[in-house]
Design a protein around this nucleic acid. Structure first.
Lengths: 143, 143
DNA sequence: GTAATTCCTAGAGGTTTAGTATGAATTGCA
DNA sequence: TGCAATTCATACTAAACCTCTAGGAATTAC
């Protein structure tokens, strides 16, 4: 059980934008340089984030990305859900509950539902504003 | 982000043993029949669980598996950790912290460490005894 | 000694992930 | 007007991982 690098990079991407959008839209080329992530990969990540309305884009020259809401109103959980889909430990918690003859009434599905909630609650308790406030500490690459 | 079927099946396997070990060691052939999981796959799952000292094996005819401790003393978290390895959202929380120049001091690693703790805390709050107490509800297959 | 069982290793087949490639559409600015 | 910077869209590939199967060796009750 682990997070995808897509989610990790997406988090760094959004934090980077939060830290730099005061000068106007932040182009991915700058994020790429600062974070050491290829431009092409960032383009892919950013699509999910704009579709989820966490970022908004400005096209053309001098364009880039801005947070769609204030950094206080975006949580790490928002980022994770948009980049990995929601945490669905088992099939019967996702859409395909038809497979499960005892939907909603078995003790293990209760367990997995509680797991999902525990994860979402934690991730939603951390805002981008909090994460963006330690700029020097975000320089490293592996997180 | 999802749990592996290895973890889901392992949980059902351990619950099944908890429910049936009163008559002596539970052979995997019976678990296979009851749970609809192939014997060969169960053999693989059980290896991790015995190595983690959650189950103990009795070899030979009339052999099988028993819980290594009482069902109250085994948590769902124990099962998950033994079957998927511990939840390590990012590299710097696992062994290979060398890759990370700012190990332990960046805000995102703090976030991921908190995530791991939230998951472990929840999973460790649920015991096998609790899960084993609703036998009729464990018949279904998708959880 | 035979049958039931655990134990061990290997690997096939499918899916997912991570990342690259190519190019079209949009727009500010000289 | 045209160029350059940018977003947007799609397709692709190589590697990793996951799920499950297979074959057979070791152990032990009866």
């Amino acid at each position: 059980m682990k997070t995808s690098s897509k989610a990790r990079y997406s988090l760094r991407l959004v934090i980077d934008i939060a830290q730099n959008e005061s000068n106007g839209p932040v182009p991915l080329s700058e994020v790429s340089r600062r974070q050491g992530i290829s431009l092409k990969y960032l383009e892919q990540l950013v699509m999910a984030l704009t579709k989820a309305k966490l970022l908004k884009s400005v096209r053309g020259q001098q364009g880039g990305y801005l947070l769609a809401r204030s950094a206080e109103q975006i949580t790490a959980g928002d980022i994770m859900r948009s980049s990995e889909g929601s945490f669905n430990p088992v099939a019967c918690l996702a859409g395909d509950a038809d497979d499960c003859p005892n939907q909603g009434s078995c003790s293990s599905s209760t367990f997995w539902a509680g797991m999902r909630r525990a994860i979402d609650d934690y991730a939603d308790s951390v805002t981008i504003a909090t994460l963006a406030h330690e700029p020097d500490l975000m320089l490293e690459r592996s997180c």
